Simulated assay, not measured.
Amino acid sequence: MIFKKRTFFGQEPERVTPDHPAELERRVAHCLAVAPGLDAADVTVTCTGNTVLLGGTVATKDEILRAEEAVKSVAGAGEVLNRIALSKVGSG
């Protein structure tokens, strides 16, 4: 049996694969890890499509806002659901 290369009007078809949610999660997590003024060690990232859900805890209210701003700067991120809470240690 001989297999011929697939063509579309003489050209090889363009293959576009959508980004996997895990790739977006990786990019968002990296952005949070390197964001200045933010300790994201206890922050979780979950993506469904291009919607990003943030969870976990941080020490200050400013860090909650910084995390959301950082996620909005990531290419491919859409709606951000920020469920980050203040940690008991940092809120005293």
Rank of each mutant, 00 (worst) to 15 (best):
30 H>A: 10
71 V>M: 05
67 A>F: 04
62 D>P: 06
4 K>A: 09
86 L>D: 03
63 E>S: 01
50 N>P: 02
66 R>C: 09
8 F>Y: 13
33 A>Q: 12
40 A>T: 05
88 K>I: 07
88 K>G: 03
23 E>T: 14
43 V>F: 01
48 T>L: 05
86 L>C: 04
15 R>M: 11
71 V>Y: 04
47 C>M: 06
85 A>I: 01
84 I>T: 03
41 A>L: 05
68 E>H: 08
12 E>K: 12
82 N>H: 11
87 S>W: 00
88 K>H: 05
63 E>N: 02
43 V>D: 00
32 L>D: 00
20 H>D: 15
74 V>T: 13
66 R>D: 07
2 I>L: 05
28 V>D: 00
16 V>D: 10
84 I>N: 00
30 H>E: 07
83 R>L: 06
69 E>K: 12
78 G>T: 06
40 A>F: 06
53 L>K: 09
87 S>C: 12
63 E>Q: 11
36 P>L: 03
28 V>E: 01
79 E>S: 11
36 P>C: 05
2 I>W: 01
16 V>C: 09
67 A>L: 06
17 T>E: 12
72 K>N: 15
82 N>I: 08
56 G>E: 03
63 E>I: 02
76 G>Y: 12
55 G>A: 08
22 A>V: 14
79 E>A: 11
44 T>S: 09
6 R>V: 13
43 V>K: 02
54 L>S: 04
59 A>Y: 03
88 K>W: 02
13 P>N: 12
8 F>H: 15
36 P>F: 08
41 A>G: 10
74 V>Y: 12
14 E>R: 15
79 E>D: 14
36 P>R: 14
15 R>P: 05
36 P>W: 10
58 V>Y: 00
61 K>H: 11
33 A>D: 09
79 E>M: 12
24 L>D: 07
41 A>Y: 05
73 S>F: 14
82 N>W: 08
3 F>A: 10
54 L>M: 09
46 T>P: 00
50 N>H: 08
38 L>D: 05
18 P>S: 12
31 C>L: 04
42 D>I: 00
24 L>E: 05
32 L>Y: 04
16 V>G: 09
39 D>N: 15
29 A>F: 00
